[in-house]
Design a protein around this nucleic acid. Structure first.
Lengths: 207, 207
DNA sequence: CGCATTTCTTGATGTGGTTCAACTTTGTGC
DNA sequence: GCACAAAGTTGAACCACATCAAGAAATGCG
C-alpha cells in the first residue's frame, strides 16, 4: 500500500502516522521515510506535565501521536493566554525559542496523558542538510504555519469574539468539544465567562 | 568586498541590496547570487497603486527596494485592518494566496511611490528545486516569518493598545514616524482616534 | 464511593476602546 | 499657489467584553 494515499487512523502507530503525514507533503522513498521517522524519539507525558518552560530553550519539535497540548503565555497581570494547541497529528513547540535556540517565553503542557514523537534541534539540522527533500518538507511546514498564523491575525483583527468562536466551531467541531473551555476561550482571545455566555446564548437561539 | 559583511545602505541598487540580504542568511557564491537576483524583475509603483487585489491570485513575492507598502483586509462592516506592511529590505505579499496559489483575501498597496523586486511563483519554484541552498533560504525566511507572526499574536493577546504602541515605538521608531497614523493604528488593532489619544497623553506626561 | 479540586455558569458592575460628528491640519494635483 | 482631498484631533455617548464574586457542575483520586 502506498502511504501517500493512506488515511491516517487512530489504529496506526506513531511512526506510521508521521510517515503517512510527510508522504502527503513531499514524495519519499521507503528509506527516506525510515531515516526521517528514525530521527524522532517517542516520549510520553502525563496530564499537566510540561514539555517547554519559560526561560529554558525549546529542545524539540513535537509531533502529537496521542493526546493534546497547549502553549500559553502569561501577561503582566499573570493572566493566562493560549497561544496555540495541538491534538493528534499536529505539531507544537515554542517556535521562536526553537528556531533561534533562545530561552522560551511560553510554556507547553499536556492537557491529557499524551504520546509524542520528538525531533531535537541538532537532528533536525542533520536531516535538512542531508537531503534536499527534507529541507523542502520543513520549508513547506513553515510556510503553512506562516499562512495559518496570518489567517489567525486577520481573524483577531477583523472579527468579534462571537464570530471567532463560530468560525472555530464550524472548522474544528471535534477540537472545540475536546478542549477545556478556558483553553478555547483564551485561544480565541476572550475570557471563559464570556465564552460561556456566547454558548448559552447560542443554545437558546438554536432551538 | 564580501557582501556577507556588507551593511545594506540606501546608496546600493536593488539587486545589490537583495544580494547582500540573502548572503547574510545563507552563504552563496557570486554565481548563485546572480542567479537568484536575476530571477527577480524590477517594478515601480505609484502611491495608492495596488500590487495584490482580493479575488486575484498573488503572483509575486515582493522585495521592497525603495518606498513602503501595506496589506489590508476589510471586515463585514467595511472597516479597514492593516495586516502587514513593508519598507526598504522587507518582503510583502498575501502569503496565503501566494503559497497556495489561491485568490487573495487582502489588498497590497503602495503607501509611497516605490520600487520593488518581484519574484513570480514559477520562478521561485525553479530556484528552490535547482539548488538546495535556495530551498534553505526560503525555509529560513518562512521560519522567521512564522516566529514573527507568533510574537505578534502573543502581543495582541497579552497587551493593551498602549503597550502595543509603546513596544512598536521602541522597536521601530523610524517606521512609526513614517507610516500614516491610520495604518499604524489599524496594524496595532485600534482606531486612529484612539492612537491619537494615546500619543496625546504620552506627549503630556513626557514633559 | 466520597471529598477535594478544577471547571463552568450566572449576575452585577466596571472599563478600554469604539463610534459618530464636527473641526483642524496637512498633503497634493493641476 | 490655490482648491480639494486626505489625514489627524477632540469631545460625548456608547458598547463589547472584562472583572469580581459566589454558587453549581463535573472531574479526579485515595
Amino acid at each position: 500500500m502506498n502511504a501517500a494515499s493512506e488515511k491516517i487512523s487512530a489504529a496506526m502507530t506513531g511512526p506510521e502516522k508521521l510517515a503517512a503525514l510527510i508522504d502527503r507533503i513531499v514524495s519519499f522513498t521507503e528509506e527516506e521515510k525510515l531515516q526521517f521517522v528514525g530521527s524522532f524519539k517517542e516520549a510520553k507525558f502525563k496530564k499537566r506535565q510540561c514539555i517547554v518552560q519559560p526561560g529554558e530553550c525549546a529542545q524539540h519539535r513535537n509531533f502529537v501521536v496521542q493526546g493534546a497540548f497547549r502553549a500559553y503565555a502569561l501577561d503582566d497581570e499573570g493572566q493566562d493566554h493560549t497561544i496555540s494547541f495541538a491534538v493528534e497529528e499536529w505539531w507544537i513547540t515554542d517556535y521562536n525559542s526553537y528556531i533561534y535556540q533562545q530561552p522560551a517565553t511560553m510554556s507547553v503542557v499536556a492537557l491529557e496523558n499524551s504520546v509524542v514523537l520528538q525531533l531535537d534541534f541538532t537532528s533536525e539540522q542533520a536531516l535538512k542538510s542531508s537531503n534536499h527533500k527534507f529541507e523542502t518538507l520543513f520549508r513547506i511546514l513553515a510556510e503553512r504555519g506562516l499562512a495559518a498564523h496570518q489567517r489567525r491575525i486577520i481573524s483577531n483583527l477583523t472579527q468579534t469574539a462571537e464570530q471567532r468562536y463560530t468560525y472555530f466551531l464550524t472548522h474544528y467541531p471535534k477540537v472545540a468539544q475536546r478542549l477545556p473551555q478556558y483553553v478555547l476561550a483564551s485561544y480565541l482571545g476572550m475570557t471563559t465567562e464570556f465564552l460561556s455566555r456566547i454558548r448559552n446564548k447560542r443554545r437558546k437561539t438554536k432551538q
